[in-house]
């Protein structure tokens, strides 16, 4: 299937649910090319999609499919080569470095596969650090309680397990009450049980705070917990699936 050739309307196979709120990301023909000439790599080759407020979406695809590139563009970590990228009607694709920084600071929470905690700060401090950027942050203790780590506030990353570190990373991401939570393979480095705990934390944030959550994974099992699932391959969205009912995270297994 050639996604680029598809009319935009055909993409929203599921009609937008008005109860689900406004369009947060409006993406048309989004492309990203690294390098030039012979050596050029087309990481994204014309992606069209819309993400809405309060949705939990999963971006599914093998490595090299362009899902991380897409997430980086949505998160303002990178700028597109071509196409339209609107965030709440604002042209994110044309924003400069300063504007992108303000965007990330105010709107986006990131969760990375490698946690990326500051090793010299405790769990509470890692969360508090990002809170310092926000005008009305969730207190670090509360954010950590939300991810089930209320008892491990003053541990350094090295004293925490992988799952715990990832939950600190999630607490850190939500502490500034972002409108968008972007998670790049959040369970990639974790075993199943720990992975479930982490996904539960994300799902709970999405449900309780109404945050748009986008999760990147190559693990198809996770598709069940999403409102919508976007499958990527070779830099294109090849399939979109809407779940009438989101499966409970605890039922997932891989």
């Amino acid at each position: 299937m050639n996604a680029a050739a598809q009319p935009p309307a055909a993409l929203s196979a599921v009609p937008p649910d008005p109860a689900r709120g406004e369009v947060v990301f409006h993406v048309r023909g989004l492309s990203k090319t690294y390098g030039a000439g012979e050596a050029a790599v087309h990481a994204l080759a014309g992606v069209d999609l819309d993400f809405r407020q309060g949705e939990l979406v999963v971006l599914l695809g093998p490595s090299g499919s362009g899902k991380s590139t897409l997430l980086n563009l949505l998160g303002g970590l990178d700028t597109p080569t071509a196409g339209t990228l609107l965030y709440r009607g604002w042209d994110l694709g044309a924003a400069d470095e300063e504007a992108l920084t303000q965007y990330r600071r105010g709107e986006v929470g990131f969760v990375f596969q490698a946690y990326n905690l500051i090793p010299s700060l405790t769990a509470r401090e890692n969360v508090g650090l990002i809170g310092e950027l926000a005008s009305d942050p969730i207190p670090p203790e509360e954010a950590l309680r939300l991810v089930g780590l209320g008892a491990r506030l003053d541990h350094f990353p090295a004293q925490l397990s992988g799952g715990e570190q990832q939950r600190v990373a999630i607490a850190r991401a939500i502490a500034k009450r972002p409108r968008v939570l972007l998670c790049d393979e959040p369970t990639g480095a974790l075993d199943v049980r720990t992975g479930i705990v982490v996904l539960e934390a994300i799902e709970r944030i999405n449900r309780e705070l109404g945050t748009l959550a986008a999760i990147i994974t190559h693990n198809a099992v996770m598709a069940a917990m999403a409102d919508r699932v976007f499958s990527l391959s070779d830099g294109r969205v090849v399939h979109v699936q809407a779940n009438a009912q989101r499966a409970s995270v605890s039922t997932l297994a891989w």
């Binding site: 920084t101 990330r104 600071r105 105010g106 929470g109 990131f110 990326n116 990002i130 950027l133």
Partner: peptide
Amino acid sequence: REQIAMLKACGFGR
């Protein structure tokens, strides 16, 4: 490197 990237991703400016 990763810490700097994370700080930037979270909105710390240059």
